[in-house]
Design a protein around this nucleic acid. Structure first.
Lengths: 162, 162
DNA sequence: CATATGTCAGAGATACTGAGATAT
DNA sequence: CATATCTCAGTAGCTCTGACATAT
């Protein structure tokens, strides 16, 4: 009996961690990542979805702009744009008004891929938030948005866009 | 004017991502990790805090039990326990009732280290949750706890503890 | 000249996989 | 024999740093 009580608790996290926001958020990163990646079929597809959403919503970007929007390092953006280009989901041209920059644009195939990915991403959200009702989900999203906004690095806007 | 409007929005995330729980959680993992690591001074100290908290709260553990409690792989637990042992914060003995297992116990130096780390960890939470008032913080923690509990892997309790 | 951009090479921390030896 | 534990080696994805050439 006491043995069974001990066993039942033997995989519960310590209270110090269960009450710790940073621990909860970091722990939840695993399932969040895994559920989305499983639905999308490929580990890196989460980043592709982010790029395509940004391109579709705001139009052409330089790679540095994409990086600032999505909080991805410039150096890591290269491979991501390479992939979209190879798959025909985006095109990379020269920006003739500022020839340091590339101008990345979404293609029609990219829009179709975005719409397809979106359904799977939404399914993953339902799995991730399964125990919460719609009101709780809204509350959670609103709170997380405040935190993400607060921890966004200071805004540096150099030249004109694209 | 239109240029400035474009520039002001050039680092805002797309709405598709701003409303996406998985994206918000994964994005927040960075600051959560960084703030705690900075306060504790060493990248790996977050894991040490978790181990010490578990040992202090529940008494001696085998390494596999620690792994199940904290959701850390057995193979990664070896180095973590090595470090605690080298620092004199825990001792690793043989469990004579089940000689496959080690029995990890916290030392008095470990308890002092835990108390010290706890202050810094709490400071990091204040930074992480800065934009939220106490009620919002409680709400957030309660919601995250539900999600973490829900995504905890299925409970497998083999033998008796320690 | 100072800065921004794209690119590449490498490091670092985290997480997972596979295998082997030992013990139940 | 089947399983559990500890350990090590290797892999993979993610993030960050440093450097360089090019352009503003």
């Amino acid at each position: 009996m006491t043995d069974r009580a001990c066993e039942a608790a033997s995989s519960a996290a310590p209270q110090r961690l269960r009450r710790l926001p940073s621990w909860l958020i970091i722990r939840l990163g695993g399932p969040a990542n895994r559920l989305v990646a499983n639905r999308l079929g490929r580990p890196g597809a989460r980043a592709d979805y982010a790029l395509l959403a940004s391109l579709e919503e705001f139009g052409p970007h330089s790679q540095a702009e994409l990086g600032r929007r999505l909080q991805v390092d410039r150096s890591d953006m290269v491979a991501l744009v390479n992939y979209l280009e190879e798959e025909g989901l985006a095109v990379r041209r020269r920006n003739e008004r500022d020839r340091r920059r590339n101008a990345i644009s979404i293609t029609s195939a990219g829009r179709r891929a975005l719409a397809d990915l979106e359904g799977h991403v939404d399914d993953a959200q339902d799995e991730l938030l399964a125990p919460l009702d719609p009101t709780q989900r809204d509350t959670l999203v609103a709170l997380l948005q405040q935190l993400v906004d607060h921890h966004r690095p200071p805004h540096r806007t150099p030249g004109h866009d694209v």
